[in-house]
Design a protein around this nucleic acid. Structure first.
Length: 507
RNA sequence: GCGGGUGUAGCUCAGUGGUAGAGCGUCAGCUUCCCAAGCUGAAUGCCGUGGGUUCGAUCCCCAUCACCCGCUCCA
């Protein structure tokens, strides 16, 4: 999207509510921060994206580098698992970030991203905190500015080692010492209690990612599904994170939906598969209509890697330029090399063997490495809506949603030109036939212009209109959403017409 | 969690210390051979929520909730 054409999120949110895509959760009670409901059209759009992902991954997975289709099976694991699973995965200990606030500057820092320099001066010892990016020169300059040029600059320490000396710490942008608060823990996992009594013994967690359910079932799938390495296990489902600040409509919400696939392969082949999936996943989003201008591929820096991806090939993101991130990009999908971190951790914690035995060499046993393409389903929905949103002052609705037909919540509208008996019965018949195959609307009321405008606003790609001529020669007009142009086709060819339009672009 | 802003009909917004309006949309009827056209009519709000001041609060004060922007974080 062109810089000047970036749509306003307020308009998108308003359209989503007005037409029934997305509502604030518990709207009549004033909403609840970080939760959203999907309305009649929103659930259609979300289901379409979900089903296309499932088809692309599980039903008709892509052809691998060797020319053979890859093997991926599905899974639907429970949202609540034994809490030991989250201790093993590192989420109980690591899925939280200690934060400190500066009372003077009102800025907030991640405690583990602060570095400290100890400075011994004649009158007193001070500790200077800096954000990670600060250069040695900048740090020295600040210290000398405060304490004079002759001071001795001491060794680096981590902030967490100095929490008992808060009163002596000068915050990165502060002038005085002692303005930092003690670090506060933000555990991002929701917890609940299983059973009638709420006590520590039966504390459990809502999953913060669907991936762990896959690792927990690795052995079950291996033992029951005749899969051979390399293979994948795919899962779509809700995940929950107690985000400090839910923001940007459904982009960062506390309850969201993920589409994750764990690809298990031999450690020697990770690079091949990492590249393969990175390419495949880009194709997927492009085929759904996200323009290459608004998509960006990015390697994670070493400092932002998750606990499971510190080694190996790291993480590559597929990012989308959302209106609220523009001109920057926001993450849509991450393709991570999780190494053997998860299977090893669960193996150690559970005492179960989670290794793979080479069928051609029974002595060759190893723990597979994992490449994980993890996409946000609800983020995908938002990207599709943002991409589709097209203001157009030259049409009555002023805007239309340019959905690819395969994701559009309604594929077509059947419109009798007038509400007369000469048009309605034939329109109804066409509707009854077509609805067996596609999500379509029959709209009889009000003038034709209003009905076209309504369909534009919800992104229906085609309107089939029945007029007098339809009764004479069994044809209808097709009105195209994007161009508003019309053509006449035979009623009996409507289905094949739509089938052709519905196909995704060449893969 | 911190700082700033906002909250009136489905949407966009006006308005006043004496419990509310417009445009658009929605619905019904008529009309209509193709783009929110025309005519007629209708429904809809405890003015975000809870307190306080006041004879009286949608308006003033306090709190709270939600949303937007920034910090932070993230699939």
């Amino acid at each position: 999207m062109n810089e000047s054409l970036v749509p306003d999120m307020k308009d998108i949110v308003a359209l989503c509510k007005r037409r029934g895509f997305i509502f604030a959760a518990s709207d009549i009670y004033g909403g609840i921060n970080g939760f959203w409901d999907y309305g009649p059209l929103g659930v259609e759009l979300k289901n379409n994206l979900r089903d296309l992902w499932w088809k692309h991954m599980v039903t008709t997975p892509p052809v691998g580098p060797d020319g053979q289709p890859v093997q991926i099976v599905g899974l639907d694991s429970a949202i609540i698992q034994n809490p030991k699973a989250w201790e093993a995965s590192g989420h109980v200990g690591g899925f939280s970030d200690p934060m400190v606030d500066c009372k003077e500057t009102k800025l907030r820092y991640r405690a583990d991203h602060l570095k400290i320099i100890r400075v011994d001066s004649p009158d007193k010892n001070l500790f200077f905190a800096f954000i990670e990016e600060t250069s040695e020169e900048e740090m020295a300059a600040k210290v000398k500015k405060v304490l004079g040029k002759s001071v001795q600059i001491g060794a680096h320490e981590s902030f967490l080692e100095c929490v008992d000396k808060l009163h002596l710490i000068v915050a990165p942008d502060a002038k005085e010492s002692g303005t930092l608060t003690p670090p506060k823990q933000f555990n991002l996992m929701f917890h609940t209690y299983v059973g009638a009594t709420a006590s520590e013994e039966n504390k459990a967690y809502l999953r913060p990612e669907t991936a762990q359910g896959i690792f927990l079932n690795f052995k079950n799938v291996m033992d029951s599904s005749r899969v051979k390495l390399p293979f994948g296990i795919a899962q779509i489902g809700k995940a929950f994170r107690n985000e400090v600040t839910p923001r940007n409509f459904i982009f960062r919400s506390r309850e969201f939906e993920q589409m994750e696939m764990e690809w298990f392969c031999h450690p020697d082949e990770v690079e091949t598969w990492m590249n393969f999936w990175f390419e495949e996943r880009q194709k997927f989003w492009k085929n759904l209509g996200l323009s290459s201008d608004n998509l960006q591929m990015r390697q994670h820096g070493q400092d932002e890697l998750s606990h499971y991806a510190k080694e190996g090939l790291g993480t590559s993101d597929i990012e989308y330029r959302f209106p609220f991130t523009a001109p920057d990009f926001g993450e849509l999908e991450g393709i991570a090399h999780r190494c053997d971190f998860d299977l090893t951790a669960h193996s150690e914690h559970s005492g179960q063997k989670l290794e793979y035995t080479d069928p051609n060499d029974q002595k060759n046993r190893f723990i597979p490495h994992v490449i994980e393409p993890a996409a946000g389903l609800t983020r995908g929905v938002l990207a599709l809506i943002c991409e589709a949103y097209t203001p157009d002052p030259n049409r009555p609705s002023g805007v239309y949603l340019n959905f690819h037909p395969s994701v559009a919540p309604k594929k077509a509208a059947i419109l009798p030109l007038t509400a007369k008996d000469s048009h309605v019965p034939l329109a109804t018949k066409i509707y009854m036939d077509l609805r067996e195959h596609y999500a379509v609307d029959l709209d009889i009321k009000q003038n034709i212009g209003k009905r076209y405008a309504r369909q534009d606003e919800i992104g229906t790609p085609f309107c089939f209109t029945i007029d007098d001529q339809s009764n004479e020669d069994s044809t209808v007009t097709v009105r195209h959403r994007n161009t508003m142009k019309q053509e006449r086709i035979a009623i009996e060819s409507i289905r094949t017409y739509m089938e052709k339009e519905m196909a995704l672009m060449a893969q």
